[in-house]
Design a protein around this nucleic acid. Structure first.
Lengths: 175, 175
DNA sequence: ACGCCCCCATATAACGGTTAGCTTGATCTA
DNA sequence: TAGATCAAGCTAACCGTTATATGGGGGCGT
């Protein structure tokens, strides 16, 4: 998980790694299961090295397993405030599929249009899954919202693939 | 750039790093300028270490700068064929924004609805840019196709943000 | 002729996200 | 009591990405 996300979760209250991981999983619903177990620990140690969090080797609390409790430093608080206030959005990652088509056509490895078609079928499958998941979730839940976003994305990508197909068929008859 | 992409470009013909980079940039149009210059060399050395490409220290050709020409090994050809045939699609990356909202609300760092609004304005700006870019490109060019995909994505994300706003306002009045 | 700048071409260190896999103890259960 | 499962944590390693460095060569103005 992105460092800032972990940092922001830690801003609510100091936690140990496992609790943090559980909170993240809860906030994502069924999609949280995709997270890798070790991810949090990697991120936490890196945050510590960067001086954004501190550990307290707490045998002070009566917590059974000899514990590492993580909390934010002043720098950490500053960083998370900064992150919350900044607007950023992941750049669309369509380039690699496009390059796959270009490369496949150039090296005569496969028919681009067949590739687009296969991709369309795959996205259709995922779209059905996402829509089924939306309905399976309780109305208005976090998970339902996320699945809805995924479905909207997939629909947009489907329409792009249609545009790709048109473009490549034109290109084939045109050359 | 992803290793497989570089590999696939190399499948067309053996090249040296710089040519490869130029070919990639051409295939992406104006978006290709975002590529980092050194990226290709990092990827190529890693591919070499993995045994998927080989270098030929060619002073054999009358090429001025003492040259490293890269070409695919048998394993490399196999790998690229595999890649072309596999259907994969980047997983939608909506989780981090969702977690930003959750964390901001939980730690009372900011008003989630204000965050959604700021994001909406930003995406609207980018959408206008993308649509302008579509029209600036020659009809049917690679770059126009890519920009169209980006625009479609952004529209989908906008609609998701609207759903987010609805959901969080409901949640606020409901708690 | 000299200095300057830009392009070709390559390389490298380092950061950050992700994964696979390991350990160790506790708890459950057949 | 042996085996399975789970909590809790850790590590090595891969890959994508960036910033930055290094030279050689060609044009160009003064």
């Amino acid at each position: 998980m992105q460092q800032e996300v972990v940092l922001a979760m830690l801003a609510k209250e100091a936690s140990r790694g496992y609790q943090l991981r559980a909170r993240l999983r809860d906030a994502l619903g069924p999609l949280g299961d995709d997270m890798n177990a070790g991810q949090i620990y990697v991120t936490l140690t890196r945050l510590e090295k960067a001086g954004l969090v501190t550990v307290e080797e707490s045998a002070t609390r009566a917590e059974r397993p000899d514990g590492k409790v993580y909390s934010l430093t002043a720098d950490g608080h500053h960083r998370v405030a900064e992150w919350v206030s900044e607007v950023s959005w992941p750049r669309p990652d369509l380039a690699v599929f496009h390059l796959k088509l270009v490369a496949a056509a150039a090296a005569r490895l496969a028919d681009p249009i067949a590739l687009v078609d296969a991709q369309r079928r795959e996205l259709l499958r995922r779209l059905r899954d996402a829509q089924r998941a939306v309905m399976a979730e309780p109305e208005g839940s976090d998970a339902a919202l996320l699945y809805e976003g995924i479905a909207l994305r997939l629909q947009a990508d489907m329409r792009w693939l249609e545009a790709c197909e048109k473009s490549w068929t034109r290109r084939r008859s045109g050359s």
